[in-house]
């Protein structure tokens, strides 16, 4: 029998995707099953997810769906990255323009003051 205090502790054992899929397929040993089940008891996200995942009989459908979602996520992130870089480049461009304008104003002021001084 296990020490009763363990009920009050939360298992921090992370469960990876493959282990969860194997659990759904009934491929795990009883010790591994317990690890997954303890994790389910402690994680509201996993606990709700397992109910949804159990609705799908063909587990290959799940792996395919995950691959598709991850692929589209990568695309989305690449787009966002490009947009950020463009925004950054635009900002750098306007900063350089600003500096040039300020320099030109300084030079022009210098010449105007010089000419006025000579007169």
């Amino acid at each position: 029998m296990r020490k009763p205090f363990s009920i009050l502790l939360n298992s921090k054992e992370p469960i990876n995707e493959q282990m969860l899929l194997d659990y759904l397929d009934g491929k795990l040993t009883s010790n591994e099953n317990r690890l997954v089940e303890e994790w389910l008891n402690n994680s509201p996200l996993a606990s709700e997810a397992i109910e949804g995942l159990m609705q799908i009989r063909e587990k290959t459908k799940l792996t395919t769906a995950v691959k598709e979602i991850n692929h589209s996520l990568q695309k989305q992130l690449r787009k966002k990255h490009k947009r950020n870089r463009l925004l950054h480049n635009k900002m750098v461009y306007w900063i350089v323009i600003g500096i040039i304008v300020v320099l030109l104003i300084c030079i022009a002021t210098f010449f105007v003051v010089n000419i006025l001084h000579r007169k």
């Binding site: 969860l20 899929l21 996200l45 997810a49 949804g52 995942l53 991850n70 990568q74 992130l77 966002k80």
Partner: peptide, 23 residues
């Protein structure tokens, strides 16, 4: 502010998110 790290993070949860949405 590199989105690569969000990608790594979100991909860890894809299967679980799919499960919640399926539920």
């Amino acid at each position: 502010e590199d989105t690569y790290w969000i990608g790594v993070l979100l991909q860890r949860y894809t299967l679980l998110l799919l499960g919640v949405c399926l539920k």
